[in-house]
Nucleic acid binder design. Structure first.
Ligand SMILES: [Mn+2]
Ligand SMILES: [Mn+2]
Ligand SMILES: [Zn+2]
Ligand SMILES: [Zn+2]
Lengths: 134, 134
DNA sequence: ATTTCAAATGCAACTTTGTTGCAAATATAG
DNA sequence: CTATATTTGCAACAAAGTTGCATTTGAAAT
């Protein structure tokens, strides 16, 4: 599906910023940060616009956010677009890149009595296959 | 074990800031943020000192950090002090409190070929037993 | 094609979180 | 008590994110 169609399906206005962000995230093989996305866009948008766009796209489940640490947020396409299940994410301590591990499907954990789960986030830190070789 | 002994065992100077932080974290039944810890201390330390203390205590595996989101970090006693295993953490969407789920031991996930795990972080978001009741 | 207007953008000002360099204070070994 | 390596506080800074408001724009209606 094309960025423009995705926006249309969600009743979102087709602005170049939103379209650009979706375009860049769709064509990436890994999760990207705000700055990585900015670098790949032709036009330069204000930070505010960028943040508001991410917020809107997240709310409409077009993209999802991966919090690596309190200082680093990355974005990838959401499961509702990729038709994948909830999955773990991998952070390479070496190249610092984040990948969606679509094969690592998240299974719910046993919780203490009275607790209810709504969402489970898993972040695996380690070394990716590319960095392992070197 | 007392805060002073913990510091002594790690060859760390016994300063009131470090001792206070450990004291507060030890006596809490949940993970606390920088500000929550500050409020519970008698003396007011500079933010820099606070951050440096957290860093030192983390490096010596006396406390561990739980990143709730890119804006929120909480601290709890580390497993090396509590003698517990790597566990998942629970964030209550209602009361916004974080708890170590020491019964929810982390089991390693299957990774794609060539990937190596070093650490797995699990954060479960949902409603805690107290908030459920109300 | 032109008009209309709710929604999106850009800008300025601000907040929160965290970091760095350096001088002053202090914990602890001798 | 003294010496000194560590730790602390302060100032200055940086990065990330938010808010209010005036301007611009997408797209629906005419
Ligand atoms: Mn993902
Ligand atoms: Mn914990
Ligand atoms: Zn790597
Ligand atoms: Zn709760």
């Amino acid at each position: 599906m094309k960025p423009a169609d995705i926006l249309y399906n969600h009743n979102l206005k087709r602005t170049s910023c939103r379209e650009g962000i979706i375009e860049v995230i769709m064509s990436a093989d890994r999760a990207l940060s705000e700055n990585e996305i900015r670098k790949r866009l032709k036009v330069n948008y204000d930070r505010t616009t960028f943040y508001r766009s991410f917020k809107t796209l997240e709310e409409h489940k077009i993209i999802h956010r991966i919090v690596v640490d309190n200082q680093t947020v990355k974005y990838a396409l959401d499961n509702s677009i990729t038709n994948k299940k909830e999955h773990a994410h991998f952070y390479c301590n070496d190249c610092q890149e984040v990948q969606c591990l679509e094969s690592a499907v998240i299974r719910k954990m046993q919780l203490p009595a009275g607790y209810t789960e709504e969402e489970t986030e898993i972040l695996i830190r380690g070394t990716c296959s590319l960095c392992k070789r070197n």
